[in-house]
């Protein structure tokens, strides 16, 4: 089945089987391996990407469901060589150890801050409650998101803008 998906502002045309999951489409068809593939049961959240601006677990979304829609992955956080504040926060606060959960944590954190620019620690914990960190580094992850909230700097929205869609 022929689909057209806009990923990080770039349009991709592919012919895929309906049973192909979005996470595998991104990783195997487009080579965007920043999105990780974890539990495969929508528990761990490492595969979280934004679909039309809303974070979803891409192991439980079909690629064909993204036909005609826009997807933002962790590769799309950086803008013109500048890391997103949440990425900087993870660097500053040692928000990752093995890094496996990081892409999902980053996408969810960006979405949280877009909707709640100054979240409490509790609100951060609630927002990432669908993401598992196998290193159990939650304390530093919460600090990293708080750091990003305090340094909004060059923040960019999770929703793909009109310009990006037509780019």
């Amino acid at each position: 089945m022929k689909i057209t998906v806009t990923v990080n502002g770039q349009e991709y045309d592919r012919d895929v089987e309906p049973r192909l999951l979005l996470v595998h489409f991104l990783r195997d068809e487009l080579g965007l391996t920043g999105t990780h593939w974890g539990c495969d049961t929508s528990n761990c959240g490492v595969c979280t990407v934004c679909l039309d601006g809303t974070p979803v677990k891409s192991c439980t979304v079909l690629a064909v469901m993204a036909d005609g829609k826009s997807v933002r992955t962790v590769e799309g956080l950086e803008q013109d060589g500048e890391l997103d504040p949440v990425q900087k926060g993870f660097v500053e606060c040692h928000g990752l150890q093995c890094g496996f959960c990081t892409p999902g944590m980053l996408m969810t954190s960006r979405w949280l801050l877009d909707n709640n620019p100054d979240p409490s620690d509790h609100e951060v914990r609630e927002a990432i409650s669908g993401q598992l960190c196998r290193c159990t580094g939650y304390e530093n992850i919460v600090r990293a998101v708080r750091w990003a909230a305090e340094h909004p700097g060059t923040s960019t929205s999770t929703s793909t803008s009109e310009e990006e869609v037509t780019a």
């Binding site: 929508s42 979803v56 979304v61 993401q131």
Partner: peptide
């Protein structure tokens, strides 16, 4: 119910 990301969908 589930978690915020699952509740989005």
């Amino acid at each position: 119910i589930a978690d915020p990301i699952v509740r989005n969908r």
